[in-house]
């Protein structure tokens, strides 16, 4: 889309709002930069000169954070959870959203609202019943148990999100596919789903962010198993009680956040690509 060449009229509002966009961007960059920079200082520098540059880059903070927070225990589990729940959710939510948004049948409205209701269910309110259910199935302290919880709690948002994407696709596409003799399943897989690719990617990213940092359910349902956010939480608390070494703490935070940042940067270009593929010619 950046290749659009048509000249645009630029009103006064545009000139007024332009600095807003840029200052927001600069501020956001500043936040991430500050976090990264603080992870390379000494704690004294963080506290007494929070806005200055480090006198010497303390790469050792990362090693120290990695070992003392024991991130190693949680990384693999978190990767499994994030991928599993992202794919699992899409696998369940995309077909549901498709039939809810593109088919006119009596219950599509009520069922959509039924799913949306799940958005309003606060996690802490249903923790104990879920715990009891998982316990019956022997799924306490199991990744599979947590995965099910993540997928289920992601469903309301995902169904809702994808419903909008499906609903905004032009009706003619399906009709044209039908005229070509394509079966409804084929239409879904070959025509409709590829068009929502940008939506699916966005959804995956949003879920990955949520699940990567999720602590409440993980804390409630895991015991010996760890996720990376649990190790970070534990680390931050230990830091608070033993006198926060901010620099090491920031290094720990960076270790957790940087993979997310990379995922986002990588996937957001895929997102553009997906759009280009859909509308390119």
């Amino acid at each position: 889309m950046t290749t659009r060449t048509v000249r645009r009229s630029r009103g006064p509002l545009f000139l007024l709002a332009m600095p807003l966009a840029w200052s927001l961007a600069v501020f956001d960059l500043f936040v991430v930069g500050w976090m990264a920079l603080s992870s390379l200082k000494t704690t004294r520098e963080v506290v007494h000169d929070p806005w200055g540059l480090p006198s010497e880059l303390q790469w050792g903070n990362y090693g120290e954070a990695w070992t003392s927070a024991a991130f190693g225990d949680g990384v693999l589990n978190s990767l499994l959870l994030v991928t599993g729940s992202g794919l699992g959710t899409i696998l369940l939510a995309a077909p549901a959203a498709y039939v809810l948004s593109r088919f006119r049948w009596r219950l599509s409205g009520p069922v959509t609202v039924f799913f949306a209701m799940g958005l309003g269910i606060p996690g802490p309110a249903i923790m104990i019943p879920i715990y009891l259910g998982l316990d019956r199935m022997g799924l306490i302290d199991s990744l599979a148990g947590l995965l099910i919880v993540y997928i289920a709690t992601n469903l309301p948002f995902s169904v809702f999100f994808l419903t909008a994407f499906f609903a905004s696709l032009p009706r003619e596409l399906e009709e044209a596919a039908a005229l070509d003799g394509s079966s409804p399943y084929h239409t879904y897989w070959r025509v409709m789903l590829p068009l929502t690719r940008s939506g699916l990617i966005a959804l995956f990213i949003l879920q990955a962010i949520g699940d990567w940092g999720e602590t409440f359910f993980a804390l409630s349902f895991l015991r010996e198993q760890k996720t990376i956010s649990l190790t970070l939480l534990n680390f931050i608390q230990t830091m608070q009680y033993t006198g926060a070494r901010w620099s090491v703490l920031f290094a720990g935070i960076c270790i957790v956040v940087i993979p997310l940042l990379l995922l986002y940067l990588w996937m957001s270009s895929r997102l553009i690509e997906g759009i280009a593929a859909g509308y390119g010619k």
């Binding site: 077909p95 549901a96 799940g118 099910i148 709690t153």
Partner: peptide, 10 residues
């Protein structure tokens, strides 16, 4: 499938 998982867990 989505409805079932959602109903049971939430």
């Amino acid at each position: 499938p989505a409805l079932l998982v959602y109903a049971l867990v939430m």
